[in-house]
Design a protein around this nucleic acid. Structure first.
Lengths: 384, 384
DNA sequence: CCGGTCCATGAATCCGATA
DNA sequence: GTATCGGATTCATGGACCG
């Protein structure tokens, strides 16, 4: 059965690519030292599947802030977060997003995380550049820092924007069923709850101080990667920092590329990633639903004999009927076509899912022809 | 004691303004029919306390694309026209935000609600116009519409931006203590959970169809108004729609001004608001914290005899001690000063709340001198 | 080893009245 | 405008320390 072969091919391909180091491209599974835009420009066009970007937030902090016990809040006042103006920040954003778009496959997608300080500018720039926003995702923090002065609401979340490279680029990966299954069988929502990165996961230097001021939790990256990539995909992080993206990508059987300017961060990230043990294939199997299942066309049912040419199909209430033709089309009155087109035609509708509309006689009862696809699929499963 | 009078004055002022209809300004507690910007330009400068805006976000960038003048664009993939549409939306946003800023008091604040289709543009424009973002607030929907195609995450939230008119405008109202008390005595977070507007609350026409497509839940507006206004304040809604802002403002003892173009919405909103029964003064009393209490200086305690000159104060762990002097200062070693300055000095800190730092002997136990202020305050209360 | 207490800390645009 | 200064203000978590 020919339709099985692409599946096997895919598996072989995944297997070959599933371990870091097995690729011939020298830039894959490495951290590139340098400026974000220059480094991106050195990478091949349309070469990465997903980009996760945690750019500077441009916090614009004023003086110092003390807790009620008078201890000093360790602010993010690093040089890399300083911008002269919104215009400067916008130009920076535009530059790295444009560079990202060239490197991103048309079937890829991009994630950008930020706070209210910068995320609106990032989102508007994404739109200006004709990226197509798929969702904005809210990371709700279980343990955010309080508002110490009681002058605002506690800033308890950050925002991620998920976008495809254009409105027409609909080939992006979204493991809908895996997300749904992971969420007690209801759709995964746009608000996610995770703790901030603390405890053992937080990288500390020999002095006991945090290596990076804004290390993201691995759980957050794990959901991003599980939702929007396939095993073997390449995940690029243009602001690599402490390397959370790389560590999670490796653990989940994906490839990574990191870009980072500061050697201290590169060293910490490299050591961190080296210590990661990739999960086995079994744990990695992305739970898939119908969309990821092997496509079984109607003619396969006819060819396999599960549906016979000349057989009569009807709708669930036997109001309409059609005759199966040998070529895998169906006919009714003077009309003929695919199960979907004919189903729409007889009902006078624009569209119709023929798999659930058309039924066949099974003893006393009517069953949708979709049931027969699962027979085919379980046969395919035995081949694995 | 003179410091009591301002409090009494404030109470009298609030009482005079606390019922709709008691104001002489003709535009207050009305719905103005017309274009948002023109209507705003007819209102007095610096005249409203809070603005809540739910602007249209019909960007029309997919499917059928229209130019700003509503003519149909023939080529949907024409990038120039898409860019032009964003520009038109930005110009519109800029125009109504500028008009809002003139009408808004310097001590006021503005809320804007939107989704990922428009909120990034709104946020960036707010920043461009030098509004100062205080928080972005996430409305998490308990019952969002599912994503029917399974190609994205369920869009389960909307975003509100809360901003003051400038970075220097720090006089905005934030009822921190009321919010905290309402939230089981922990700070109110930036993510709020509410159901979408449904059931009885949802306005329906005689045909049974919803009057307005995006009617907001009253609970959401109630939290916005309770958090950022005082009783008697004027709340302006430049995109009034079904009048949720007006209905909630009236119920909560605030004044409203609505601007709306469509007569059908105006009629529905007017009838809705007319049926609203304002809450009584007792129900409207806003929870306040220490900042709102009558100021009692330390020397009042000494003058009243609650603390005696020569008495020894210590911190809670008896690590530091100080002697009270007759002039209301305290001394320790070679240092002397206010309870706050000396508390800071002995600890080597920049600041210290002397009221909670210094303790006095009360039988077996140590009690903060702050306890004695409540004695003074209850005496003052009897005089009122 | 267990439980209690103390302490440190996290992407933070964090005071306001009076002189 | 700026400078001064009274005094108000925090939640969850993990690790250290102690009895």
């Amino acid at each position: 059965m020919a339709s099985v072969f692409p599946l096997a091919d895919l598996k072989a391909s995944v297997k070959a690519d599933s371990r870091p180091g097995s690729r011939s491209d020298s830039w894959v599974d490495t951290i590139i030292k340098g400026d974000c835009v220059s480094a991106l420009e050195a990478l091949p066009t349309h070469s990465v599947d997903v980009i996760f970007a945690d750019p500077p937030y441009n916090l614009q902090l004023g003086g110092t802030l003390h807790r009620p016990d008078q201890s000093l809040v360790d602010a993010v006042d690093d040089e890399w977060d300083q911008f002269a103006s919104f215009e400067a920040y916008d130009a920076f954003t535009r530059a790295w997003l444009l560079a990202c778009r060239r490197v991103l496959k048309p079937t890829g997608s991009i994630w950008v995380i930020g706070s209210y300080h910068n995320i609106f500018r990032v989102g508007a720039t994404l739109q200006d550049l004709n990226f197509w926003i798929l969702n904005d995702i809210i990371w709700r923090k279980t343990n955010p820092m309080p508002n110490f002065k009681g002058r605002r609401f506690q800033n308890a979340h950050e925002t991620m924007i998920w976008a495809s490279p254009s409105a027409k680029a609909k080939g992006y990966t979204f493991n809908y069923d895996a997300m749904k299954a992971a969420n007690d069988d209801v759709q995964m929502r746009s608000d996610w709850l995770f703790p901030i990165c603390n405890g053992n996961e937080r990288l500390k230097g020999e002095d006991g101080k945090k290596v990076h001021p804004t290390q993201k939790p691995e759980a957050l990256l794990a959901r991003v990667i599980m939702a929007s990539t396939k095993p073997g995909d390449i995940v690029l992080d243009p602001f690599f920092g402490s390397g959370t993206t790389g560590a999670v990508a490796k653990r989940l059987g994906r490839h990574f590329v990191g870009i980072e300017r500061e050697q201290d961060y590169i060293d910490a990230a490299a050591a961190r990633i080296a210590a990661v043990e990739p999960l086995g294939k079994a744990e990695l199997t992305v739970m898939t639903g119908k969309k990821a299942e092997v496509r079984v066309a109607f003619n396969v049912l006819v060819e396999s004999g599960l549906i016979k040419p000349g057989q009569v199909l009807t709708d669930a209430k036997r109001r309409y009927s059609a005759i199966v033709r040998a070529d895998g089309t169906v006919a009714s009155g003077g009309d003929a076509g695919s199960i979907h087109r004919l189903g729409a035609k007889v009902q006078g509708l624009d569209a119709c899912n023929g798999w659930t509309f058309w039924h066949f006689e099974d003893g006393q009862s009517l069953r949708p022809i979709d049931d027969l696809r699962s027979v085919i699929r379980s046969d395919l499963a035995k081949v694995e």
